[in-house]
Write a protein that binds this DNA or RNA. Sequence first.
DNA 1: ATAAATACCTGAAACGTTTCAGCATGTAAA
DNA 2: TTTACATGCTGAAACGTTTCAGGTATTTAT
Lengths: 337, 337
Amino acid sequence: MPLLSKASKQVTIHDVARRAGVSIATVSNVLKGRASEVSEPTAERVRRVVEQMGYVKNLNAAALSSRRSGLIGAILIGVFDPYSKEPDPEINPFYGEFVFRLENELQAHGDTLCIYAGREEAYVNFLLERNLDGAILVGVIAKDLPTVLERRDVRLVLFDSFVHHRTHMRVQTDELKGGALAADFLIARKRKHLAFVGGAVRDFPSNIPAIRFQGASRACDQSGHRLLLVEEWTSFEGGRRAAHRVLELKADGVIASADIMAAGLIRGLQEAGAKVPDDVAVVGYDDLPLARYVSPPLTTIRQGLPEKVRAAVELLRDGEKGEVRVIKPHLVVRESA
Amino acid sequence: MPLLSKASKQVTIHDVARRAGVSIATVSNVLKGRASEVSEPTAERVRRVVEQMGYVKNLNAAALSSRRSGLIGAILIGVFDPYSKEPDPEINPFYGEFVFRLENELQAHGDTLCIYAGREEAYVNFLLERNLDGAILVGVIAKDLPTVLERRDVRLVLFDSFVHHRTHMRVQTDELKGGALAADFLIARKRKHLAFVGGAVRDFPSNIPAIRFQGASRACDQSGHRLLLVEEWTSFEGGRRAAHRVLELKADGVIASADIMAAGLIRGLQEAGAKVPDDVAVVGYDDLPLARYVSPPLTTIRQGLPEKVRAAVELLRDGEKGEVRVIKPHLVVRESA
DNA sequence: ATAAATACCTGAAACGTTTCAGCATGTAAA
DNA sequence: TTTACATGCTGAAACGTTTCAGGTATTTAT
């Protein structure tokens, strides 16, 4: 079984045209459904020949000719832990759902999804070489977007990016609102001593945990509460470690910057003998499938992934330069708070 | 911002050739690194021009000409729940990890991953139209593989398929062994009344849960134990429902056909007041990230996803027709058993 | 000195589409 | 009767690569 297919030659549009007794231009028109260009009897004849010969279009050739590849890229930064080279399970479940929802949206218009999850330095090449019609970039990139992307007029949607960009489009959740939702809920539940557990909150001003923290913090301010900050790396283990600090601080309501962290936090709290939610109420963030599987099931902020993905695809199709779509988050009440 | 890029014309291999004062054939040779065909000074000059002009290869054109697209497809059946049209969170985490591991393996050889997770009827078109160099099909397909795939000599690896196929390749875990591993472990832990909780065990002879059950069953036979069967749909809720039956049957050791189901089962057991693992020991299957996040963390069978993905990619590159790779599973001991 | 081999390079034909200008033919308007 | 326009179709030129069959020099073997 050779690596290169030596299979019988492909049936091309020429073969179909010859057999149907028309020109290739006509076949192309039929395939594209340009009814006004072809009489119905001819179209029907062509369609029958296509069927008979088992003709399948070569999208590669079509792409070369039309300059539309029908390929949309998803560039996923941070899927792999740079140290272990293993996919990071803390991030995975989100990315998985993202990918499948995206694929589903693209399907509807006949586009195909290509994944890039490699080194950050090479994604630009990926974008250009493959002649993608557009791409969605998820995750925090270290460097600025290279200007070559503007010159080549690549349609790029930045997913969850909070850095303003003149030429590219963006989709994001209203994270300030999300943080506020969580804080207000805990306050409504009569929690007095609130804490926020999250990673790298101070490191990057436009970091997602940082914005969530700010949202929660402002909500606390408005109702005269204080919001303590426990900084830990956003991960299960980080959450678990944070449990000690949370107990030391005597917090009775905690907002975790991600579900995965909330899960770790709850584990840590339980290991230390605290009851959730009776002693400490915990609100997560993201509403990953995971949120339903831990016990107690997580009360969490749903970031609106379906809407965000849909918005991203819409922008890809006919967004304007610099356009931004902001999705409203929602509170999902389960049992952890 | 137009949908079709009206950007400045692409820099082509012709432009590079002209500027460097050589033929396009030479440029192509340089780009391909065929050192024996080009003198070093010439090659260097070409490389410099490439750099200067910001030339980027058009892989579309390359694919058309060379008949190698550098595209590998992942065909994922069952990602979407046919009723809700939502991605099935019970299956997602596995698929997510699969996709990222696969992408990573392909990266290493410069190939790009395309995802197809649409309707089962259309995956064949996807395979042919896009001129994929190969594809991996995951999940149970209802119909036989169409013969057109053989005629067109599509390189296809069936992932987790237990149906023999003359022309296509397969990768799978030794699920019989996996089931046995789980059963033997419970027996070694002095559990007397074993049960297997799984979905559709009797429906399809080549269904994965069915094989896992068989493996466990045989291991029980060999040591004079009986293995009760509790059939429930493989899902969190299915596991939860199964808890009642498990308690009725007075089983003290249970094998779940998937981690997600084990998670539900544990929740159900705990809700009914039973202690895991003291009253009932639970062994899961798959070792999803999830396994570490539930409490108690799952003792489970690792199906060897990294090895399987690697094997699949190897087969894609130089497997023989009908070749099968079987990966050995491993027991991961945590706290649920 | 001639023949053979080698090193380096080129011209041109694919690959399979899309699309545009143009060409008949028939029909409606002037 | 001429002009204009619509309809249905075609020829041929792109699109940007790869690759193969040569074609010069230059070197080596005879």
